[in-house]
């Protein structure tokens, strides 16, 4: 299931929780782990200088600096490296999302593990309350063929393995791929799978009648049965629930109540012009108490092994 894992890290404390999950997955599932850091080029064009992640200062780029960054990454993850994970550490120069996607393609990884954002991580976290996913994650999640696992809050990294999975259903095309990933993961790891849909009553203008809510919930249950549960035939540890409310709040609440250790969702429910993360997914991955996987494409999801 997880034979090759790409852990894309800025090397900052924002990625500590993602590191905990990435290294734990590598050991637990005997996967090959690529710890990958991109030294960002500060402009669109070619440059001889990069911005140091820790100091924020511009630094002359040369082989020595890259070697030093790799050494620093080894120091940063010294404790995790002692866990026995099969791991290589690499630092390259370029636009972060482009290099991460390139590396993922090159190694044909099964999953990419990332933090949600580096902005506001250090020192100024009160000024940046992190209500938005970072641009690198947005770009990677949009274009990646492999599912992208995001760990934002430290509390999301305390589970150690996946055995209770919540699939946030939205009935979109990408959601079909996400469900296949969730089902495949549940089957291979022997996990419980909860299919969950939240009927959105937030975007309605004015009061919505209880009958309409009930009707929409009945309709959602029927769609879940036809679209997802029939696919899961033969797998007994799967059940479905429909709640009403603000979708991202309900998904986070449901995962908390079920004590889920993984949430799987589609990248977005509607095709947007900029291909950004859906609002519900973005808020879930920022707020969840467990890792969240975004699935956008079928490539690494549909059974081919």
């Amino acid at each position: 299931m997880f034979k090759k894992i790409l852990f894309a890290t800025s090397g900052s404390p924002c990625c500590d929780a993602a590191a905990r999950v990435a290294f734990d997955m590598a050991v637990r599932y005997n996967a090959e782990l690529f710890v990958f850091h991109v030294l960002g080029v500060p402009s669109r064009g070619f440059s001889h200088v990069v911005v140091d992640v820790r100091t924020g200062e511009k630094v002359e780029l040369d082989a020595d600096y890259i070697a030093w960054v790799q050494e620093e990454l080894k120091n940063t993850y010294e404790r995790q490296l002692r866990s026995g994970a099969r791991c290589t550490i690499e630092a390259v120069v370029g636009l972060p999302h482009r290099e991460i996607l390139r590396k993922a393609r090159q190694e044909d990884v099964d999953i990419i593990v990332m933090g949600a954002s580096t902005t506001g991580c250090e020192g100024d976290s009160e000024a940046y309350p992190k209500h938005f996913a970072g641009s690198t994650l947005q770009q990677v999640a949009k274009a990646s063929k492999a599912p992208v696992l995001v760990v934002n809050r430290p509390a999301a990294s305390f589970w150690g393995g996946f055995s209770t999975i919540v699939f946030g259903a939205d009935f979109s095309r990408a959601s079909e791929y996400a469900f296949q990933f969730a089902l495949k993961t549940a089957r291979e790891l022997g996990a419980k799978l909860y299919v969950f849909h939240a009927v959105d009553i937030e975007s309605q203008h004015g009061l919505i009648s209880q009958q309409e809510i009930d009707d929409r919930m009945l309709e959602a249950r029927d769609r879940i049965r036809r679209k997802y549960l029939l696919q899961a035939k033969g797998y007994k540890d799967v059940s479905a629930d429909v709640w009403e409310g603000i979708p991202y709040v309900e998904i986070v609440k449901y995962a908390r109540e079920r004590q889920a250790d993984l949430i799987v969702m589609a990248h977005h429910s509607r095709v947007t012009s900029d291909g950004a993360l859906g609002r519900t997914l973005e808020q879930v991955l920022l707020r969840a108490s467990c890792p969240v996987v975004s699935v956008n494409r079928p490539d690494k999801v549909v059974d081919n092994d």
Partner: peptide, 11 residues
């Protein structure tokens, strides 16, 4: 404790 070798605290 939360972080333990085989099974973590929340589990």
């Amino acid at each position: 404790d939360l972080e333990m070798p085989k099974e973590w605290g929340p589990r």
